[in-house]
Design a protein around this nucleic acid. Structure first.
Lengths: 253, 253
DNA sequence: GAGTGGTCTAGACCACCTT
DNA sequence: AGGTGGTCTAGACCACTCA
C-alpha cells in the first residue's frame, strides 16, 4: 500500500498488524460493521458466543468490545447486549435551531418526553447563575430526548419562575424556547455553550438505559435575555456516540 | 441532605451510596483528588499498593481507575503509572486565536515541536478537499503540542504547496497561519471546525506517550481563503481530558 | 427460566519504564 | 534489576432482560 496523505489513515480500522489479541478481535468485529454485515442497530453475538469463535477468555472479548464502545462504533443496552451504533447527528452551537429541528433536518426522527417537573430551592451554585438568593424556588425540568427511538440525551433545564410563571403547566415535550417566546415574551439575546467529555452518572445513565459510568458528553447551554438575565440553564447529557459538533465561521460577518 | 436544584448534583463525586465495589474505590480516590490530597500531576499509588488498602483484586482496582480516566480525573503514562490530570484548557472555535495564544491567555505554558515534514501525493479523499488531482504532492506537517510540558495533542496539517511554495523550509514551531499570512499573503476568510470523540490510534497514542485506544477528541479544522480554496487542513488529536469547548454567541452580531 | 451482561477473584507472564 | 502497567486465563456468582 503506497503511503499517501490520506487523512483517514489515522482513524482507519485497517490496523490489522499484530499486537494484543483484543485488538485483533476488535478489528474483526469492526470489519464486519464496516463491510455492512452488521447494520446500524443490529445486535452483536453474545460475549460467550464470540468466545467460541476466537478461543479467547471472556475478559479479552470484553476488552475488544470496550474499545469499540470508546470509538463510538457500538453501544450496549444494560444486560441486554451489544448493538451497532447508528450514525451521530451533527450539532452546530452557532445556529439557533432546537433539537427537534436540527435532528429532523438530518433525516432522523426526534422525540422528547418529559420525565420530571419540579420546583426546587436554588443551591448556591445555581443561585449564582440566576443571580437570585440561595433557596429561591426554581423550575427544574427533566427531559429525555431520542433519535429514531433510541434515547440519546437527558437534560435538566432550570428556569426562573419569575420570568415564566406557571411554565410547568404547559406541555414541555416541544421547544421550550418557543414557549418562552410566545407565552412569556422572553427574548434570547445571548447563548453560551460549554462542552466536555464526562462519564454518565447513575441518574443520567438510568434514564438513557445504559450502565453507569458509560462515557458521555456534557453540553451546558446558558441563554440570556437582552438585559443579561439568565433565561434558561440547560445541562444536556449526551451519549458520546450520538453527537458531533460542527462550527462554520466567516470572518467579520 | 436537602434536595436542591444544584446543577452539580449529577456530576458530583459524593455518590457514596452502595453499588459495585469498584465505584466505592473510585469515590475514595476521587475524594483524595478533590480534597487536594493529590495535586494535579501527582502520581497515584501503584495498582498493587491500592490493592492492599482495599483487599480487592487487581482487576477491580483497574476498573475504578478506568472509570476515573473516562471522567478525565486521572490519566496514565504507559507502564509508568497513573497521574492526576491537570485542568483542561478552554478552546473557543469562534475565536481566531491560535493554540500558542489561547493557552498562554489561560496562564499555561504552550509548546510546539515539529515531528514530521513530508511531501506526499494526495489520496483521493484529500484530493477532494483541496480540489486537486489525486496524486498531487501536498505538504504534510506533523506537530506535537504540549501544555506545561505535558503533550496534549498531535496534529497533521495538510497544505497545498501551490499556495505556499517552500513552506517546509520555515521553522514550523510557531503559528502556521501567521507564516501563511506574512510570507505568502494568504488570507483566511472562512474556518470550519468539526469535533468528535474518538479512540487514539497507535500513531497518535505513541506520539502522546499514551496507550493505544485511549479515549480522545478529534478536532478537524479547515481554513478557506476568500476565493473558497482550502488553505490549511488540520486534524488535531487531543487527549480527551485536556480540552473543553466554549462558544459564546450574540444574536445577529 | 434461560440467557445476557456486570462484577469479582486469584492467579500468570510479558514489555517496558525507571533507577 | 525491580517495579509498573498491559494482557490474558478460567473460573464464579449475581441482577437483570427477554421470551
Amino acid at each position: 500500500m503506497p503511503k499517501t496523505a490520506d487523512f483517514t489513515s489515522w482513524t482507519s480500522t485497517a490496523d490489522a498488524a499484530d499486537g494484543p489479541q483484543y485488538l485483533a478481535i476488535r478489528n474483526q468485529i469492526a470489519l464486519s460493521i464496516e463491510m455492512g454485515k452488521l447494520e446500524p442497530g443490529a445486535k452483536l453475538p453474545s460475549e460467550r458466543q464470540l468466545q467460541t469463535g476466537s478461543g479467547a477468555a471472556r475478559g479479552t472479548i470484553r476488552e475488544a468490545l470496550f474499545q469499540l464502545e470508546a470509538e463510538g462504533l457500538i453501544y450496549r443496552r444494560d444486560r441486554s447486549g451489544w448493538y451497532v451504533s447508528p450514525p451521530a447527528v451533527t450539532y452546530d452551537p452557532t445556529r439557533w435551531a432546537g433539537f427537534m429541528t436540527y435532528v429532523a433536518e438530518q433525516g432522523r426522527t426526534p422525540a422528547t418526553s418529559t420525565i420530571g417537573k419540579e420546583n426546587l430551592p436554588a443551591s448556591s451554585a445555581v443561585a449564582d447563575i440566576f443571580r437570585v438568593a440561595p433557596g429561591t424556588p426554581l423550575h427544574l425540568i427533566t427531559r429525555l430526548r431520542s433519535i429514531d427511538g433510541r434515547p440519546v440525551l437527558v437534560e435538566r433545564i432550570t428556569v426562573d419562575p419569575a420570568l415564566a410563571p406557571g411554565l410547568l403547566s404547559h406541555s414541555l415535550d416541544g421547544s421550550l424556547t418557543h414557549i418562552l417566546t410566545t407565552h412569556y415574551n422572553v427574548t434570547v439575546a445571548r447563548n453560551r455553550v460549554d462542552m466536555r467529555p464526562c462519564a454518565l452518572t447513575r441518574e443520567a445513565a438510568d434514564a438513557l438505559g445504559v450502565k453507569s459510568g458509560t462515557p458521555g458528553l456534557l453540553v451546558v447551554r446558558t441563554s440570556f435575555d437582552t438585559s443579561g438575565r439568565v433565561v434558561e440553564y440547560d445541562q444536556e447529557y449526551w451519549r458520546h456516540d450520538a453527537i458531533r459538533v460542527h462550527v462554520d465561521l466567516v470572518v467579520r460577518c
